[in-house]
Nucleic acid binder design. Structure first.
Lengths: 221, 221
DNA sequence: CGAACCCTTGACTTGAATCAACATAGGTGG
DNA sequence: CCACCTATGTTGATTCAAGTCAAGGGTTCG
């Protein structure tokens, strides 16, 4: 599945991982089909990943199938860096996704003589930590409406405030990210539409236009 | 409030932070009274902290006062390392607590020439991240009983499986950690007691003896 | 054209929150 | 030493937010 990526569709912060690893480091680019697994919980953590285009969900499962999505990763985001030998969660492509892959060992070697790179690596890890902290607050203490408002605002922010954004994931994915049922997500979005805070596209239901970011932010609490 | 700490009550992993920073680095020890704030959300992140004895809660607040405790920190744990200039959450002593304090700058300087130290630092950060990931699963997808079972097991593990453990925090603190109300925490503990999975001390209600760790783990899912 | 998805909406149920009462421990001051 | 007060915890009654169950519509794709 190895492919060449057209450099035209790269995003601003694309280069971090490659720069961090240095030129000595082999750095491949892969394509993953929609829904395919990138790595599984418990597998050996041999590589570190950065998204070129597309979207990835990282999640954990309970034994009875309940799923908690920790993060959605968008172009430029890094994921899969583990301290131990194995991955602590599963990563799947939400839709067709291109990722850059670097061997974990290469990064650790590169760290030996590049202090700036070390700082970057810590930055990448602490960004994940920061997101996790915010998400714990959301999961533990926000209502369904607040969660969904926070979700669309987060995506809006990360996509750079587009006029209309296209959600890369299904209602079920959103539900598992927010600790809700998919019906509750759907109802909350309908409520926000009815109150004219956003518009939902009539056909695909994946296109969202934020009409009142201020009101959404107020809802988020 | 600067004090000398008796080296007798230090814990096994006490030395990490000091070792990480190196001898050049000034390293103070402070005492915080029960309930007192160590740093606040949004404050400048000048120091990094490690617990010598006692317990610390780190949390975020919503504007209407809802609180989410991200972590309880026990002796040996590090907290307060920030990537940016400010703290992303508040830290308070749950009970009388002694902490070791190192200037953040000192650590970053020490990193320049001590690769091993860098690895330790990343380890400390990724440990926090790992905990956050597990906690998101708990907050988003576990029932009240599962949450409380997971909580007592986590504490049991971190305290080294004592015969009887004394909870350092109140029911309200536990509730805010698990995303529950304090009544629900109390009820869940009573249920676990009624089912003979643990024993609660009759007077203080802070002493817990685990009677069936296997059954608790099964409950946790 | 049917089949498989995905999404929405309605009806009903339920797990946990809220409201409320009471118990006990520890601290303070008369 | 006791009366009082505040903290903290438990338990019961009730409410309510969100889950579950169910039906139906739109889209895509073979």
């Amino acid at each position: 599945m190895l492919v060449n990526i057209n450099s035209a569709n790269r995003r601003p912060n694309d280069g971090h991982l490659a720069a961090l690893a240095g030129e000595r480091v082999s750095c491949c680019e892969f394509k993953y089909d929609r829904g395919s697994e990138i790595f599984g919980e418990g597998e050996e953590a041999e590589y570190v990943y950065q998204i070129i285009s597309g979207s990835v969900r990282t999640f954990k499962l309970l034994s009875d199938g309940r799923r908690q999505i920790n993060s959605f990763h968008l172009p430029g985001d890094m994921f899969g860096f583990e301290n131990g030998a194995t991955h602590r969660f599963t990563a799947e492509a939400v839709l067709e996704t291109y990722v850059r892959i670097v061997r974990r060992d290469s990064i650790l070697e590169a760290m030996q003589d590049r202090v700036a790179g070390t700082k970057n690596l810590i930055t990448l890890v602490t960004q994940n930590l920061q997101h996790a902290e915010n998400h714990m607050l959301l999961l533990g203490r926000k209502t369904a409406l607040e969660k969904v408002a926070a979700f669309v605002l987060e995506l809006d922010e990360r996509l750079g405030h587009p006029d209309v954004m296209t959600l890369p994931m299904s209602r079920l994915d959103i539900a598992d990210y927010l600790g809700l049922s998919l019906e509750t997500v759907s109802r909350a979005l309908s409520t926000l539409r009815d109150e004219k805070l956003l518009r939902l596209d009539g056909t695909t239901h994946r296109r969202v236009e934020l009409l009142d970011r201020g009101a959404l932010a107020k809802l988020d609490a």
